[in-house]
Amino acid sequence: MRGLLKAEVLKAIRRPMTWIALGILLAIMATLRILLIAISFVPLPATDQQSTPTNVLVDLVTLPGAAADALNFVPSIGIFALLVVAASLGGTEFAWGTIVPLLARGASRSQLVLAKAVVVLGLIALYLLPTATLGLLLGTVASQLHDGSVPLDWIRERWLDFLLGLMRSFWVTMPYVLAALALAISFRSSALAMGTVLAYVIVEQVGLSVFQLLRPMLASSTWSWIASILDWTLLGANANELTGLTTRAFLSGAASLGELSASQGHPWRATLVLAIYATIFLALALAAIRRDVGTRPTSS
């Protein structure tokens, strides 16, 4: 297992895609944050007595509010890059035919999948840390620009929330990247796996937004059980549950953004459901790798 793990780490580190995807993510994050910081200086018409949209934006870009977005960036936007990298890590072994020399000397197939899963999880951490750091850095700049000083009290008061936020982001991203890896091994194709998981993520996010609008109607009808089942079973609903906790921990005006209005507050249930999904995807990958392997690359 150690040899396989070392080989997988070597491949991931030396692969340009790993670093290009991280670079793109950091560039997207910097661009979005700088745009938000700029917009936060523009006075917008108020629609709420307590907090104007400008105030909400200021909260979002300055510290400690900026920490929420810094931590949730990987599970929201960063997930797309991670899905591509994870699917590629599994699928290209078949496309390039490298699965043949890998397995030719009797290497344990289940250990190979486990080594890949460990590397994919390591990549989540690798992407989380620099994006969170950049987010905090830009939050510091925004705080300095808005308030003329950088608040530091929150670090002492909320360091545990920050740590929990990192862990929640990791946990939320985990089942998605394992799904991408499992499907890449099952389909023996990176593109098909990427397409399937990305399509699921997009459909789920749009579906969940529509569902939030319908929720009040469902709650008062005999169909309220549908809402409960969706809350319990959907990957995205449980993921939003955990990322919402991070947002609420750092962003006092979060509710006014409408982002968390549906949150029912079942973090342990969400944590467990996400773990079950991750286990199912890992089991799928372990089953899929057991199939016969042809000696010709699937891309030729």
Partner: peptide, 30 residues
């Protein structure tokens, strides 16, 4: 199987690694 060397019909390696790195990866696996 550790004592069996296979040379498949199509040579398959990681395109972004050089010869040495490719063999290094395989040596760790084997």
């Amino acid at each position: 199987l550790r004592r069996v060397g296979l040379m498949p019909e199509v040579a398959s390696f990681y395109p972004y690694l050089n010869a040495r790195q490719n063999l290094e990866v395989m040596a760790r696996v084997y």
